[in-house]
Design a protein around this nucleic acid. Structure first.
Lengths: 187, 187
DNA sequence: TCCGTTTGTAAGCAACTGCTTACAACGCTA
DNA sequence: TAGCGTTGTAAGCAGTTGCTTACAAACGGA
C-alpha cells in the first residue's frame, strides 16, 4: 500500500525464508489452528500457492518452523547457566525466539506435542540432568523444565497477575532458589 | 448401535446435561478449536441444533463448561493441603474433573485464557498466598501455581518421559520440597 | 534468439465450520 | 379432544479452510 511497491523479484530462497518467518510469528501469536495459510502468505507478502509448492502442507511448514527455532542457543550454553538462560529468554518480552510460544500456543496440536517432546524433551532436559547427581536425575530435570514451561504458560497465555508484570530478576531469583532445592539436594 | 436403542425421551434438562458432559470431555481431549459442534452433539446423542437452542453459541457452551468444572474442590480444601491436593488431582490419570485439561488443551483460545486467569488466578493462587508471609506472597503463589500447571502440560500434552510414568508420590515429594523453599523461606 | 525451467499469480474446488430454518412429534392443559 | 408450547429432527446456508490447477512472466543456457 506504500509507494515503494516492490515488484517482488524472483528469489525462491528469500520467499521461502519470509514464509518461514511469517509462519513462526503467527504460530507463536495464535497457535497452529488459528493461523491460516492465507494469513501466513499475506504477512510474508507471497502468494499462498507458493507455500504449498515449497513446504507441501501446512503441517510440514509447522514442523519446519519448529525444527528451525531451536536448539542452537542451548548447545552454546554451559549447563550451570542453563536454567537461568532458558528462564530469562522466556521472560524476555521482546524476544525473537518464538519456539516456546509456538509450543504453548499450539498445545492442542498433536504435532506440537510431538515437537515439545522431542526438542525440549531430549535436549533441554538432558542438559538439565547434568545438574544433579540424584538417582532420579531425569525426573527432577523434567520437573524443573515443567516449571519453566508453566511460568511461560501463566504469563503469556493466562496473563496472570502479578506474574505477568513482575521483574525478571525477582522471578529468576525465586525460581533458582526452588530449583536449587530440587536439583542439588542430593537424594 | 446396540439393540437397546433408546427412543430419547422428551427431557430437555437431561439433553442439556449430556451436551455439557460431552462438551467437557471433548474440549479436554482436543481443545476448543478441534472440537466441532457436530462432534459434541454426536457424543451426547443429541441433535446439534439443540446445542444452539440451549447454549446459543459454541463459545457460550465452552464458558458454561468452564464455569461448571470448578472450584468446589478448592473451597473445601484447607490451604495447607492445597498444593498436594491440586497436584494429586492433576496427576490422577483417571480423574473425572476435566477442568485442567480444558485449560491446557485450549490454551490458544482467548476465552480459555480468560478462564484460566479467572478461575485459577483468583481462587487458587489466593489460597496459595495464605501459605507464605513474604511481602511478595502473591508472586510466589503464582510461581507455585505455574509449576503445577507446567507439570500437567508436560505430562498430558508433551507426554514427556520419565515424567509421564513417574509415581505420583515421588513427584509430590519433590515438588513439595521445592515449593517449601519457595513459599516458606520468609523473605 | 529460442526454449525449457523456475518463480509468481489468480481463480477455484471440495470439504468442513458454526449456525439457522422449517417442520414433525410429543405431552400438557383446558 | 382440541389447541399450543416444548422438544427433537432434517436439511441447508454462507463463510472459511487447506490445497490444486491453469497460466503468465522472468530467467538462463543453447
Amino acid at each position: 500500500m506504500t509507494a515503494e511497491q516492490q515488484v517482488r523479484k524472483r528469489d525462491a530462497a528469500a520467499t521461502k525464508a519470509s514464509l518461514l518467518d511469517a509462519a513462526a510469528e503467527l504460530f507463536a501469536e495464535r497457535g497452529f489452528d488459528r493461523t491460516t495459510v492465507r494469513d501466513i502468505a499475506k504477512r510474508a507478502g507471497a502468494n499462498q500457492s507458493l507455500l504449498f509448492r515449497y513446504f507441501g502442507t501446512k503441517e510440514a511448514l509447522f514442523e519446519e518452523v519448529v525444527a528451525r527455532s531451536g536448539l542452537e542457543k542451548l548447545a552454546a550454553t554451559p549447563p550451570e547457566q542453563l536454567l537461568s538462560t532458558i528462564l530469562r529468554s522466556m521472560l524476555d518480552t521482546d524476544r525473537k525466539d518464538h519456539s516456546l510460544a509456538v509450543f504453548l500456543r499450539s498445545a492442542e496440536h498433536d504435532s506440537a506435542a510431538g515437537a515439545i517432546r522431542r526438542q525440549l524433551g531430549e535436549a533441554y532436559s538432558q542438559a538439565l540432568t547434568t545438574l544433579t547427581d540424584s538417582p532420579d536425575a531425569e525426573l527432577r530435570a523434567d520437573l524443573a523444565l515443567a516449571w519453566l514451561l508453566g511460568i511461560g504458560l501463566l504469563r503469556e497465555i493466562g496473563g496472570k497477575e502479578p506474574l505477568t508484570n513482575a521483574a525478571t530478576e525477582d522471578i529468576v531469583e525465586l525460581v533458582l532458589a526452588g530449583t536449587r532445592t530440587l536439583l542439588e539436594r542430593g537424594e
